[in-house]
Design a protein around this nucleic acid. Structure first.
Lengths: 248, 248
DNA sequence: CATTTTTTTGCGGTTTCTTGCAGTTTTAAT
DNA sequence: ATTAAAACTGCAAGAAACCGCAAAAAAATG
């Protein structure tokens, strides 16, 4: 293999995963560690990537969206990792938007084999980095605020699909009122999403527990998993026991 | 074997495999290493290929990766600014993907009032920053390589819309062959895009002038604007005069 | 047709590039 | 502090590139 080809391959890996391990490259390309190290050194000199101990990082990792100021990022990563375990090989999954879901899209296992429908372009871009995920972006009007597609066109497309699992962020959750929201359009959309999924998982930072908003989306009985950053036995979650609801 | 025959053979190898090793060519053509080296040197000078230690790589293969880290950014900004002037208040516009189009999305006038259909999530995110642009993201399968939606679902949605202007990047353009491409799916998609637009503008860095690929998209007569970073009177553009085509 | 001119090609010698190895130092995590 | 993994350093062998030259081939010329 020519050096340039190696470099291209490495760039592809980096564009795909935002990072590479030297050891993985050694296996993948089947050359010595030294060669990989020198490759990374050269590419780093040409500022094509950031070289770090053990591998390299994408330079453009700081994507379009500066996610450094994402609120409660650490908590969201914990939630995302838990949620990632729900996604099994062969599944068809539907996701909403939001920073928690976006984090989930980054935390999936490298080689997972699945089909993802999503209404969030950002999530689509993130999912596209996995070699074995098929991504279908549901199109329609694009909301400047929530950065998702919405409107009648989206909803009518949702009626045509049928998924194993729907992963949803939430604005507010409460034992009595269930999931609630403020925006009527988005609420309609989420109802349609729930409607086409066999199972529903709600990702929610503990801060949003015991809050309610004006519009009711659905009650707790209709969701199957509630995922927070808290320990499963945390007392804050006691009130959320429900027949079909598994707390993770 | 004549020199030109050797060159043709080398080009065929490169088009076929995207790469070629000097040592293979020596065996294949049965000439000395020096001859091969000199051949590759000449072809590299004529920028028909990329010469690297040990062989040569296809130029197009290489530029795929260059595009990802915004190759020729300055030129693309010039093109984008010219193209931005085509978009008037009240228009309904359809755009493709690619770095040039993305740059265009950044160069529009602040308060422009328009409706944009797009197959590129990245472009959608960029357009969403304008307060008075309505963005409609056309959904479907998401292509990991070109970062756009594609496939039958996208095409059938394109049949249902009708736009004033279609803004398209291009892989290759040539006076005789018109616009050409390598990917059949993407080509079908672009045909559908042309089909639903009253006017078509092609954005193209001069480097891609006089290049052809395997699949024909359309001939020059069917496009209305050709936008490059060159001066309108540049001699490289002389061959592109066509009845309906305005060079910008 | 003969001869001159130009181009092309292969060869020998030299230089540069690439890669893996061995030994040492640095890093990061416990 | 200990320890294992990774990074660095220098080196050497093999491969490829380069340079100048001269033979061979092709083209041009009178």
């Amino acid at each position: 293999m020519l050096k340039q080809e190696r470099h291209d391959l490495i760039m592809r890996q980096i564009n795909l995963h935002n990072r590479v391990l030297s050891s993985d490259l050694v296996q993948l390309i089947n050359v010595s560690e030294d060669t990989i190290r020198r490759d990374l050194q050269e590419m780093s000199d040409a500022s094509l990537l950031f070289k770090v101990h053990g591998g390299a990082l994408s330079k453009s990792y700081h994507s379009i969206f500066d996610d450094s100021d994402v609120y409660a990022k650490e908590d969201k990563i914990v939630i995302a990792k838990k949620a990632a375990k729900l996604v099994k090989d062969g599944m068809v999954v539907l996701t909403g938007g939001g920073t928690t879901i976006l984090e989930l899209a980054k935390q999936l296992p490298e080689n997972i084999n699945a089909t993802f429908f999503t209404i969030s372009p950002l999530v689509a871009l993130e999912l596209a980095k996995y070699p074995n995920i098929e991504v279908i972006l549901i199109g329609g009007l694009f909301s400047k605020n929530s950065q998702i597609t919405y409107g009648g066109h989206v909803i009518s497309q949702l009626y045509e699909i049928n998924v194993d699992l729907c992963l949803l962020g939430t604005s507010a959750i409460d034992p009595k009122n269930g999931l609630t929201d403020t925006d009527w359009e988005i609420n309609q959309l989420k109802k349609a999403m729930l409607n086409c999924a066999k199972k529903v998982a709600v990702l929610c930072i503990s801060e949003k527990l015991n809050t309610s908003l004006r519009l009711k989306l659905t009650s707790l009985e209709n969701i199957n998993y509630l995922i927070t950053e808290l320990d499963v036995n945390d007392e804050k979650l006691i009130d959320y026991q429900a027949k079909e609801l598994k707390i993770i």
